[in-house]
Design a protein around this nucleic acid. Structure first.
Lengths: 342, 342
DNA sequence: TTCCTTTACACAATCGGTTGCAATTTATTT
DNA sequence: AAATAAATTGCAACCGATTGTGTAAAGGAA
């Protein structure tokens, strides 16, 4: 009960009159150690409350079995699901996950990248901060052969692994769904362009879908938001509902925005989906709770996390440094719910 | 661009013809090193792209400036806000945060505690897993003088730091609010008792408030849920609405439960708040978005995180091992919104 | 019995900062 | 100028696990 000191393999070695090398090998079932010794060592280690010092092992071997995750925030449902997926894959292969939040700040992202590097993580999974517009701070990983996987919000023109959805196609599908439900005057919220230009892609899909269905693109119906928050969503929605006539559909590239549109519509006496149909993006929990619940595009967050972690683990195993970093595309689907019902 | 090797203080020392000890000290502005040397060393370090190896420093000094956070999940709004608070405080004092999720599993909690210990974290902040009913796996921290702070869901009868709200008082306040709004037949959702018995406390507050206002406690109105999920909330709500007469108020010890009650009520044609008033707990984002928006009890998540981290940092600084571990109580308030309007 | 192959374990260097103490240089005092 | 104090910097051990290499003992074949 009153130990107050870390137990090391030296302590075990002394107790058993063995060399530390034997202890170390015995603990990991090395084939040159006899079963009898292995059993004895493990038992003693257990008794003495031995817990290996990860730092020492990491320092010596220069590998920590740790995956660093650098994301804007853990509070977004999409990102917490992403983490969940990463953890599942990591745990399976006995990796530890360490999470850092950039809070969408470039400066913090730079610092945390350095911190991860300083901690000698074995691999890095990152979704870029909104502010980030250059990726120099990631070169330290690439240069040192540390697998780097970008997820969701990925940089352009940087040869690393990427796990993404096809935002263009997803935007296309969402818009097409609205058209199929009878909309002909479809609005869209777009968001400031940044390095990981997923909103631009969704917008591109929206425009293409309109064109393919012979609907003229009306710039008036494309509202550029400063951020994808509820507040800005309300502003955008009010702008839409001030138009005459109001649009009969909206593709919001985020569920929070879709929610804000639904609520604003309600407040102004506009019926959803009768007068105004809405489709969101992400399949956030809230989209199924709100009334009417909201059609959306699935965003396979957990799968993406799993895929990203697996890429890292795979690359760590076979340390072949093949220079072609693949891009993994995951599928999205339309989830038709009440908010787009005919 | 093509380095492919970690730069160490040895490399800097060689380049400048100085001893590694001088480099090490210069980099942290040790007073025995001249300003000239410090400047020179820092400049060279920068040029060479030196990043200190945290593992080596941690191994030698047996302190890592890392706070381990062990919580059920990052997806709950309360917990992600908690993390946010921890990070703010940690960053201020230049600590790194590493987050692990127990997913409310006892087994995982035990493993991750070991992992944190193995990583030689400087301190630990923990909110217990639902399943956890003994705390032996935390003794390794207490025994080795590693500050341990429990937050929100804390164990009983274990002398460690604790940061909590007064769940009893909060439950009392919530119930009292319903009474003041005219309710006389007030239901309550309670949840399985576990080690960190916050639901029991809230229930105790509920009962006391009723008694103090001369309302008889009706066991029929206290529904014991298996979990605090939306699904179980729906089940509980239906059970309530099957009663004759239905209750006129509900104190749900979680906003998700409150939301489920509101939705279920709507579906059954019961008007909120006219026929049925609801107050939740936590002030989750969803509580303000749902229609009608839901009265709730604030849960100062970020403050709690900040307080917890500060306790650790303070204790690490002054390594006085005072045996009395204080309990920090943070305040809660009723947030009256539409769902409890008269 | 002798030689060779396994089997089982020990030795010691290593990873990269940190730090107590010694050593050297420079500044100050008498 | 000599002596003492102060300012700098170097030396080397240390943290704890890992691993290539060396060695002794045990088993088998000739």
């Amino acid at each position: 009960m009153e130990e107050n000191k870390y137990v090391t393999i030296y302590d075990i070695a002394e107790r058993l009159n063995l060399a530390t090398s034997t202890i170390s090998r015995a603990l990991k079932d090395h084939h040159t150690i006899s079963d009898k010794t292995i059993k004895k060592v493990k038992k003693t280690a257990e008794e003495m409350g031995f817990v290996p010092n990860t730092l020492a092992a990491g320092l010596r071997g220069n590998k920590t079995r740790t995956i660093g995750v650098l994301i804007p925030t853990v509070t977004q449902p999409f990102l917490s699901s992403l983490i969940s997926g990463i953890e599942i894959a990591a745990q399976k292969s006995d990796y530890t996950v360490i999470i850092m939040q950039s809070h969408d700040s470039y400066e913090e992202e730079v610092n945390m990248a350095k911190s991860l590097y300083s901690n000698r993580v074995s691999g890095v999974i990152c979704s870029l901060a909104m502010e980030t517009s250059d990726t120099a701070h990631f070169h330290q990983f690439s240069n040192n052969n540390i697998p780097l996987v970008f997820v969701d919000r990925v940089p352009k023109g940087y040869n690393t692994f990427r796990v993404v959805i096809d935002n263009y196609t997803a935007g296309y599908k969402a818009t097409k769904h609205l058209i199929e439900q009878g909309c002909i005057r479809i609005a869209h919220f777009s968001a400031g362009s940044e390095l990981g230009n997923l909103y631009n892609e969704r917008k591109r899909g929206y425009i293409e879908a309109l064109k393919d269905h012979n609907i003229e693109v009306d710039e008036e119906l494309i509202i550029n938001l400063n951020s994808v928050t509820y507040e800005d969503g309300v502003k955008g929605s009010n702008a839409l509902f001030d138009l005459k006539p109001i649009p009969d559909g909206l593709f919001a590239p985020g569920d929070i925005l879709a929610v804000s549109a639904v609520q604003t519509a309600k407040k102004r006496g506009i019926r959803v989906p009768e007068d105004f149909k809405v489709i969101g993006f992400n399949n956030d929990p809230i989209s199924q709770i709100i009334d009417p619940n909201i059609s959306t595009i699935t965003h396979p967050a957990e799968k993406m996390g799993k895929a990203a972690a697996e890429i890292i683990i795979k690359n760590l195993k076979s340390s072949k440094n093949d220079d072609a970093k693949e891009i993994t595309f995951l599928n999205t689907e339309v989830l038709a719910r009440e908010s787009t019902q005919k």
